[in-house]
Nucleic acid binder design. Sequence first.
DNA 1: TCAATGATTAGC
DNA 2: CTAATCATTGAT
Length: 184
Amino acid sequence: MIGCTLVKKIGGNKVLWGVIVETEAYSQKEPACHGHKKRTPSNQTLFGEPGRFYIYLTYGIYHCVNIVTDKSEWASGVLLRALSMPDEEERICSGPGLLARKFKLDRTYDNRPISKKNGLWVINKSSSLKNQKIVKTTRIGISQAKDLQWRWYLQSSRSVSKRAKGDQLPSTKKSWSPSIENSP
DNA sequence: TCAATGATTAGC
DNA sequence: CTAATCATTGAT
C-alpha cells in the first residue's frame, strides 16, 4: 500500500488526498490483531470482505483506519499509520490517530468498500516511488507479538510517525513528498 | 513517564 | 456489575 494515494471527497468537487508512507499489517494468527480472539460486533468488519475500510475508536480519543485484506472469514488488515500531504501539510498525518482526524474518518465509515462512489477511495500510484527505499521494522504501540517486523515505511519521507532505531533522515538529503504524479 | 478519554472485554 | 485493557498522542 505504500505509495498509494488515499482520497476523500469533501463537498461538491473538492477532494482531500495524501500518499500512504507508513503501514502495519495485522493477522488473526497473531495476538496483536483485533480479530485474534473472536468475532464481535466491533471487529466484524475485519472478518468481512477484503477491500473495505475497518475503522475503530482507540483510547477513547482517536480513530484508526485500516484496509481489510486477504479473504472473508479471516481477520486481517493493514493499518494506515501516516500520510504525506502536498505542500504545507507536512507531518499533519504522522500517526494513525492524526490521519483519521485530518480526514474526519470515524465509525460511520467502517465497513465501507473502497470506492469513489462512497467518497473514500485509494489509487495505486506506487510507481512514483521507483528507486525509493522501504524500511521494514517492528510495529508500534502493541503489547503482544512485538517481535514481528510488520511495519513498513518510506525511508525518505519526513511524514513517517516514528523511525526505526538507527534510521535518521539526514538533514542534507531531500525528503520525498507528493507531486502532481500522486494526485487523484 | 503519564494523563486524557471512552469503547470493549474479562471476570465474577 | 466492575476493573483492566487498548493497533494513541502530546507534554514533561
